[in-house]
Design a protein around this nucleic acid. Sequence first.
DNA 1: TGACAGGAAAATA
DNA 2: TATTTTCCTGTC
Length: 278
Amino acid sequence: MQKINLPQGFSLERTLTCGQTFRVLKKGDVFLYQNGGSVLALKQEGNSLSFESFGKETSEDSVKSLLGLNDDFALINSELSAVKGFSGVIDKTLGISIMRQNPFETTISFMFSVQSAIPLIRKRLNSLSEIAGVPIETTYGKFYLFPSSSSLRQLSDSEIKSLRLGFREKWFKEFIMSYNEEKIMKIADMPFEEKEKELLKIKGVGIKVAHCIMLFSMNELSAFPVDVWIKRGMESLFGITGTTQKVTREGRKLFGRFAGYAQEYIYYYMRKIAKEGE
DNA sequence: TGACAGGAAAATA
DNA sequence: TATTTTCCTGTC
């Protein structure tokens, strides 16, 4: 068990459940989450984060990077609150950070997210992991690692069918069959525009999913994924409407280099309001 | 039970 | 090039 001092206001719960990632297992006040080939048991107590690693050992630096703890939240929030009409949103969404996830799992996750609500996405990803992933025993229960590309290639047709991916199935098959880790890593190192262009070449990856991949797994904090919630938010907060392309462009222009953080805040804020309205 | 939720790609103009 | 239509599954 190791401990990390957290930045002021950080919320593990909000960060893991705000929608940027899916395969989180909550066991009481402990969250199980994969990092590389190991499973982390994470627990926050005030400004302290304790973590225990199952499988391979995990360094403190690796946990910090995963959870986006190296981001300068004071700077980010001060820049974003300079945007007229936005500080009220920040006040209600404090503690969320942008995680730095694995591009392979992130691409599949958001490919699965197309025209789907979060519980369904989670179900698909968990089934996939149970079918083809390695189980890791922890003191909090079993956790399946996300499958490697090679084990996904070995799935039978009936196993893939059992995921009930619908029209996403052909994208998934094509992606795993043509997946090349070197190529993805090369894309991750490209400048923003080229990255976006390359990601859009993947079948099943449109502008929203491309921006999710860039923001959550390729260190592009200015990416601005636009889904229905962001459209609602941008309209009600700033009067910005239009196509996904247009809202993406205007959101990036409005918020600048930390637009991705603004996006997470808006997403969390809009969903929270929607829940409270029920 | 039919309406509704949710993005990408193909079709159309 | 910009707008419209089609694609699937799950939930209520």
